[in-house]
Design a protein around this nucleic acid. Sequence first.
DNA 1: GCAAAAGTGTTGGAAATACACCCATGT
DNA 2: ACATGGGTGTATTTCCAACACTTTTGC
Lengths: 245, 245
Amino acid sequence: MLAQNPITAQQKKLTSILQQLKSDGTIGVSVDCVIFGFDENELKVLLIKSDLDKFEGQWSLLGDLVGNHEDLNEAAYRILKERTGMDDVYLEEVKAFGEVGRHPAARVVTIAYCSLINIQHHQLKIHDNELHWHRLNTLTNLAFDHKKILTICHEWLQKRIQEHPLGFSLLPKKFSLRELQNLYEAILHVKLDRRNFRKKFFTMGLLEDTKEYETDVPHRPGKLYRFNYEKYKQKERKKWFGIDF
Amino acid sequence: MLAQNPITAQQKKLTSILQQLKSDGTIGVSVDCVIFGFDENELKVLLIKSDLDKFEGQWSLLGDLVGNHEDLNEAAYRILKERTGMDDVYLEEVKAFGEVGRHPAARVVTIAYCSLINIQHHQLKIHDNELHWHRLNTLTNLAFDHKKILTICHEWLQKRIQEHPLGFSLLPKKFSLRELQNLYEAILHVKLDRRNFRKKFFTMGLLEDTKEYETDVPHRPGKLYRFNYEKYKQKERKKWFGIDF
DNA sequence: GCAAAAGTGTTGGAAATACACCCATGT
DNA sequence: ACATGGGTGTATTTCCAACACTTTTGC
């Protein structure tokens, strides 16, 4: 047998803290990360085997209790770092979930975070733990209320990605327009017109031509682009007003 | 002297709970309500005199710790009910605030809610407490991080009101188009073209003509309309896709 | 030379904007 | 009669949606 896995040790500690909470009658605060990745033209989510008996065999989001001297954001970053080894990821708070019965062991309010990472860059760390990338469609029921959290984070992402340049976090630094379009189609679950899609991004003027091309593709290689964050930040925000519901 | 105010009693209890939390080293969970009203063509926010010595003389949002057997939403509704007497208000979660130092007495994570109420309907209850409606512009610094929470809720509202029919919660059931436009102008802080504004709302087809007119106005009275929630709910949602950032 | 995807423009319709005059009411 | 805001229509522009053929590369 291997030496005890650090994650397992951590889970034992967690259980004892939850018991403590329960007997105190106080409320625990946790953070759960919905970690999205994009691979094989599909949106994937990173899940871990649940360690609670009650949810044996089910998958759950990556989460942990928030430390006493730790901001919520810090806690979310810590979880990502511990589990994936990454610390330069996109991460944003989505919503709090606090129903009374949502955690079987104690009263726990959780803050859900959405994070986007590039799968290619992080194959390594993941093999260690009981972590796997799952397709969104073929998900059975998850532990806790994690299915609900996942659904809401996905909907949040669908809206968010149309108004902010998050998507690039899921792609390599240099990407083709085809990859970008596949990404949007996968997340929004729609088919988009190729010419209009290109026109849209070109007229935004935020894609930078790298002068490089795809390699190892069995067809004409596409140009590779890079997203220009600097230009985006300096871009004048207008478009105030568009009532519609 | 009057008999002790129930709110004051509650605050004392609160203080003792916070001390308990601090000595435990556990995290408290609270809810804060940003209650918006619309009066004299201005957006107002309902604040209470802070009861902490540290923030003496400053105003704060209406909030309370979440009970152990109480959902977050329930807690928010309870606070509104206790302070304003209302229970049919619009209420929606906006964001969690959990910085380590945000509460001087203990570690408290708060979930901010945005609520919209019609000022005319609730003059009564408010006189009892140390509650006042404040203009948004002329706000000095608030207690805790409440200024930040307020700003974020206002920005959230600006966006939200353009995509969902929340605004009507701030108006009487029957309202003129002028009132509606004033509301949007106040919240968004812009001037809108009257004819285009009307056209927009008429073509949405969700305003119902009540056949009634304004009274007591020193000019030609405007028609009164009612928002048709039924029709809104049945309305086909489309407009999927509009990338722009 | 063939398969597969890259790349590229135009057109018609819908929606947003800008804009000015007459009308109904209270004083 | 006059002051105040209510009510309405049109012309222009801008944005979005639909749509097909040629080019480049690997095999």
